[in-house]
């Protein structure tokens, strides 16, 4: 009975998107710091980044910066749609990252 309850809870957790798993966060970090993928630190400083750039805003207290996860997704997917002047690449629209990868980057950034 206990086991069934545990399974039930585990199943509910991701659906409610309450917390990212350590694996998702680690995957997000890898994407964020890989030049051929997210390459986030080329332009953004965030804690732990090595030789980060300063073209984009510093990513600190990210959950307070972009509390709306949907908006965060939209920014990474195609920021130009919101702000035509931006030089942030459209990671989703231009198929640089998959939706899953974008979500992992968000999971990672929400730890910053």
């Amino acid at each position: 009975m206990k086991a069934i309850a545990a399974i039930f809870v585990v199943c509910l957790m991701p659906c409610a998107a309450l917390a990212a798993t350590p694996a998702e966060i680690a995957a997000g970090q890898k994407i964020a710091e890989t030049t051929t993928l997210g390459n986030c630190d080329a332009c953004h400083m965030f804690q732990g980044a090595d030789e980060a750039g300063n073209i984009g805003p510093v990513l600190k207290d990210v959950r307070a910066m972009v509390p709306d996860r949907k908006l965060f997704y939209a920014i990474i997917y195609d920021e130009e749609a919101r702000n035509p002047q931006t030089i942030m690449p459209a990671f989703g629209k231009n198929q640089i990252l998959t939706p899953k990868q974008i979500n992992e980057v968000i999971d990672f950034m929400y730890t910053k």
Binding site: D41, N54, P89
Partner: peptide
């Protein structure tokens, strides 16, 4: 390009800023 940059994106708009350790 897939990154959607013009020459000006880096060498006008972001001129003088750091791309990683390098100054544009």
């Amino acid at each position: 390009g897939q990154l959607n940059f013009s020459c000006a994106s880096c060498h006008v708009q972001a001129a003088g800023m750091h791309l990683r350790g390098d100054v544009l």
